[in-house]
């Protein structure tokens, strides 16, 4: 097959994990079917990032220009259209991240190319690329096929695989920016850091995590009592923080914190991939959920498939007794 373009993602001087994850997937695809892995990097003062990408690609194509000092989806789109037209890769991979979803759909519309989002896996059927994605928050998988001519475009889900040690030594080619002037209709202004709360959950040894399953704020004391009994800090899913049951700095997941406690007790959390990405590195995971198909069970060490309102109070009572 033809080449695979991987649009590298970086922020505040650092490569984001998704970049190497995409290159790893791209290498698997090309190993089986031929073609080169080409990392595409747009930035300013990014020589060292290009070096790092070379360890995972056959070629690094990069633009180093003050126009790309900060991320701007509209500028990325202008340049990617040019680079894709000039190089005609078979597959273009962009991260299914806050950056990628800001670029990819518009790029697909402009170029009129086949587009599948949030791909978790790429398979082959009859010599053709077959992206796999999910529906209903992970409860159903779908095989897709691209129709018509390449290039094909996908956004790839993050944090689905371990990145190996670098094993390639790609040629690095610096190119002039196809974009010559800044655009005025969208401008980057600044970054705003997350607010800092009273407890840093990334440092907690034991976490009790709550989700939408507890239904109402008035059920929080039940959780607080459990946490108190075992000296745990409380955190939660995005549903719990959006609802205001917890402060935002207690949110676990891609848009919140990544935690690795000794023990993580997930209560009434379904386990959306954005949540799993933030907690699956925990040493021991307990999940309490009444839905046997809840994806949270895929990362759990101990599973209680039942009504949390029946389980949690008794669990607290027994723990108090055993620890008392």
């Amino acid at each position: 097959m033809g080449n695979v373009f991987v649009i590298a993602e970086h922020r505040q001087g650092l490569l984001r994990d998704i970049s190497l994850e995409m290159l790893t997937v791209a290498s698997q695809v090309t190993q089986q079917n031929g073609g080169d892995v080409v990392a595409v990097l747009l930035g300013s003062g990014v020589d060292s990032l290009a070096d790092k990408l070379a360890g995972y690609s056959d070629k690094v194509l990069y633009v180093d220009d003050p126009l790309f000092a900060d991320f701007n989806a509209e500028k990325y789109q202008r340049v990617l259209v040019e680079l894709i037209k000039q190089n005609n890769p078979e597959l273009v991979m962009i991260g299914h991240t806050t950056q990628g979803v800001d670029i990819a759909p518009a790029l697909a519309v402009e170029m009129k190319i086949p587009f599948v989002t949030d791909v978790i896996q790429i398979e082959f059927a009859d010599g053709k690329l077959q992206p796999v994605r999910q529906y209903y928050q992970g409860k159903v998988n779908a095989n897709f096929a691209f129709k018509g001519e390449s290039p094909y475009l996908i956004t790839l889900r993050e944090a689905t695989l371990e990145v190996p040690e670098p094993s390639k030594k790609g040629a690095i080619e610096k190119i002039d920016s196809p974009l010559k002037e800044d655009i005025e209709y969208r401008r980057f202004i600044e970054y705003v850091e997350a607010e800092v709360g009273d407890v840093d959950i990334t440092q907690s040894e034991i976490l009790v995590a709550v989700g939408r399953g507890i239904r109402e704020e008035k059920n929080m004391p039940m959780i607080e009592e459990l946490a108190k009994a075992i000296n745990a800090d409380i955190c939660g899913s995005r549903a719990a923080t959006d609802a205001g049951w917890l402060d935002h700095d207690r949110q676990v997941g891609t848009s919140g914190k990544t935690v690795k406690p000794k023990l993580y007790i997930a209560i009434g959390i379904s386990g959306a991939f954005q949540h799993l990405a933030g907690m699956k590195g925990s040493k021991t995971i307990v999940a309490i959920n009444k839905d046997p198909d809840a994806p949270i069970f895929s990362v759990a060490d101990f599973a209680i498939i039942d009504d949390l309102f029946k389980v949690v109070p008794k669990l607290t009572e027994k723990l108090k007794e055993l620890k008392g």
Binding site: K112, I113, G138, N141, A142, K147, G148, F297, D301
Partner: peptide, 17 residues
């Protein structure tokens, strides 16, 4: 430009007790 070929229920690989 894309076609949904088929849906299937993913096997949940769980090592949970």
């Amino acid at each position: 430009l894309v076609e949904l070929k088929n849906l299937y229920i993913p096997e949940v690989v769980s090592h949970a007790e």
